[in-house]
Write a protein that binds this DNA or RNA. Structure first.
Lengths: 317, 317
DNA sequence: TAAAACATGACAACTATTGGCATGATTAAA
DNA sequence: TTTAATCATGCCAATAGTTGTCATGTTTTA
């Protein structure tokens, strides 16, 4: 076997083992101890952070984490990695920050001048924006770790009714619009609730109970069966069509006439009425709600409420 | 110099040069032609996609793109790359798809069993969700490319008033909430407009005119000077505080009293009034607008409009 | 003090690499 | 058709690099 191959084998072996003596390596690879010393010197020269302790019970220790065998990337692949990193830019409190730094550095250094420029351009002209809120999520890393380990959690959670304690089994965690959400099984009641990770004020890791509920993908893709289904029928002007197509929860239900106008005809849950009323208030005459009556009444009621809050000025302007 | 180092040097040289003869390499690296043949055989064995054309004017050709020198990653760094890739999952029409595939494969294969499991878990339990709209952005890759090359563009753009042609200098492109936006300098009027990339129906690349306007970061970070500034003053219940803190454009202006209630006191642009009215409609009595009168009037007017659209039923229910 | 480890040097035996030369095959231009 | 330029491969001697053994240190701990 060539020296290079054997060096890599030893590199992988020692980086996995972290602590070892020269004799062990010699036995494992059937080479002499003298050669092991020479090899370790080579690896050290190649940048492996390794140090030796002298004396009885001494030995070598590798400082870095497990190392992968050398990988050849094309320039385009490197650029793709930078592109992906760019998408994390507008998040706060993410894990892997140091790793992303070190990967970026390693890649950038080995790029040629032209490709470096390409990466620079990409970073200046492409962004994955999300609201860079003042809100921090200091416990995000802990939550992620717990989820990867499938641990149960005891959390202190801030909700409308103040801070409460909950014992949960997280289903996963996802980012949306700059905030992190965690659907989790409430162990006291076997119901699934959605938590905002930034509102978790304290966390205690419990046992790793591989209670298989659903996974995150399933949860996200669930089309919730409306528990109190109700028909939503709305006539839209062409502007109404345009706007409703930009509403994720409605876009699938929009039907377009050839003249640009259209309508919505779908089944929603009673609970969503309130949320929708806000949209149709904004759209005004661009969206005429025909059904359900409850929604119409909600709009009307809201309108009355507003008029009560903001009464007509006594003297006309 | 060791053989390994020289092989890497040659690897980089030939992958950059793409087409070359053995003699060239021999001259460049001061080695014999015979050795060059042997080296190229080695590289070919190592997976470099290289082929030779026989005969006069023959030579070697490297098929792949430029290749980076072998890089050593730690396991954690590999996981970080997967984490970053995960963030692209809920986008459509992204560039670099093939590269992301190939990088993932290379990395995954070289991971050890335990780390593979970690990556699997990460992919099942962590998501960067955004509305996976039915909307496609087929021209995204072209737009990105044009932007990286700093090209001017002629586009066909679909707006409220139908499809129009525009000659623009893009400033950059960013994703927000699952859609891609492109601020660009309108060359006919020197104004900056914001385009939605999915509404671009056609594209023609113009000259590469490095007309330095602002870059994307600057554009995104610009706090627009309100052109028609107007004071916004709103009293909030504690629920109102909670909700307004989740509104990116207002959160910075929310002031909280010790009892949980609070208020907003800031300067906004006249143009944002309409947008805000939707929010304050929704909040109802949780947010009492005190200023400006224009907003109050807008809310009232909207309320009247709604009542006109949805008249009281003749017979009380 | 002895044992267990790393560190380093010298040297001979061994192995791999290299360059030179020869031979062949393929291709395109003269 | 011939010739020149190119890749492909084999052989071999010269050179360079690697390895194992032995020797000699040093450091640390039981």
């Amino acid at each position: 076997m060539s020296k290079a191959k054997r060096l890599i084998d030893i590199l992988l072996f020692v980086s996995a083992k972290k602590k070892f003596t020269a004799q062990e390596i010699a036995d494992t690879f059937h080479i002499s101890v003298r050669t092991v010393h020479r090899y370790l010197l080579d690896l050290s020269d190649m940048g492996l952070p390794i140090y030796a302790e002298q004396g009885r019970h001494g030995g070598y220790t590798v400082l870095s984490n497990a190392i992968l065998p050398p990988i050849l990337f094309t320039e385009e692949e490197a650029v793709a990695i930078f592109f992906a990193f760019q998408s994390l830019h507008y998040y706060r409190d993410l894990p892997f920050n140091t790793e992303i730094q070190s990967v970026s550095q390693k890649l950038y250094e080995s790029l040629q001048k032209e490709a470096k420029k390409k990466v620079d351009t990409l970073q200046s002209y492409i962004a994955f924006w999300n609201p860079k809120r003042a809100i921090t999520t200091p416990l995000l890393t802990d939550v992620l770790e717990a989820i990867i380990n499938q641990s149960q959690l005891h959390i202190h959670y801030e909700s409308k009714s103040g801070i409460t304690s909950k014992h949960i089994q997280p289903i996963g965690v996802y980012a949306h619009d700059g905030l992190w959400y965690m659907p989790a099984l409430l162990l006291s009641s076997e119901r699934i609730l959605l938590f905002r990770v930034d509102r978790i004020k304290g966390i205690k890791v419990g046992e790793t109970n591989r209670k298989t509920t659903m996974n995150l993908q399933q949860w996200l893709e669930t089309d919730y069966e409306p528990q109190q289904p109700i028909r939503l029928y709305v006539e839209l002007s062409s502007e109404g069509v345009r706007q409703c197509l930009s509403e994720p929860h409605l876009e699938k239900a929009v039907v377009r006439h050839s003249d640009g106008t259209g309508y919505i005809d779908t089944i929603i849950d009673q609970h969503e009425l309130h949320f929708n009323s806000s949209l149709f208030f904004r759209l005004g005459q661009h969206a005429i709600v025909k059904e359900p009556q409850a929604l119409i009444q909600l709009l009307r009621q809201h309108a009355h409420e507003l008029l009560a809050i903001y009464p007509e000025p006594k003297e006309p302007q």
